[in-house]
């Protein structure tokens, strides 16, 4: 993965595969502590204790199509490489929360990448799911939510071509925090 926006896309796709109807992605930068905290939280089916233990093992996957599961392990590695931390909380029926903390003053911090493209890809693939993105830098915060975009579309589906400029417009505003 070249940048953090691709990691976000990848891990959020896990949430959607776990039948989440709501996914909240948070990026919180603390410029005093030099940390960037990424949280991806969903209300999907969650994992039991046994599965959770194995979730960051690259040779574990629940998928039937292949025998390795690199998504979470790559994100954990990306965080650890900056001297940061990584953890997951999950319960069956409750959902899953993935947290990756990066040190922003470390050489090995990956660039943020194109968050707008990540959000758009998630929305096009799953227009029925509520997706929220929260960007926070110290005490400033801005929020993108598919529910808000939907309210401006007069019933037009989120994945219709006419909705796309509106989505991009919203996301760009949020990213200009």
């Amino acid at each position: 993965m070249e940048d953090l926006s691709l990691h976000i896309l990848d891990v959020a796709e896990n949430s959607l595969a776990a039948k989440a109807t709501r996914v909240v992605i948070r990026l919180e930068e603390d410029t005093q502590a030099n940390t960037l905290r990424l949280t991806i939280e969903d209300n999907g089916q969650g994992m039991d204790k046994e599965t959770l233990k194995k979730a960051v093992d690259p040779f574990f996957t629940t998928k039937q199509t292949r025998r390795v599961g690199l998504g979470l392990s790559l994100l954990a590695q990306a965080a650890h490489e900056t001297g940061g931390q990584f953890f997951i909380e999950s319960k069956p029926g409750w959902g899953t929360k993935v947290v990756a903390i990066f040190k922003t003053d470390h050489w090995d911090l990956k660039p943020l990448g194109d968050i707008g493209q990540t959000m758009l890809t998630l929305i096009l693939g799953h227009p029925e799911v509520e997706i929220v993105f929260i960007l926070r830098r110290d005490d400033k915060e801005s929020i993108f939510s598919t529910e808000e975009v939907k309210s401006k579309l007069n019933g037009l589906p989120l994945n219709s071509p006419r909705a796309i400029p509106l989505i991009m417009n919203h996301i760009n505003k949020v990213m200009n925090l």
Binding site: M1, L9, E13, Q117, L120, T121, L124, I164
Partner: peptide
């Protein structure tokens, strides 16, 4: 859009179709 696809550039492909 699996991990493999994303790492190989699937998002860019999605964008090209779009």
């Amino acid at each position: 859009m699996g991990t493999c696809g994303i790492a190989a550039g699937a998002r860019e492909i999605m964008n090209a179709f779009l």
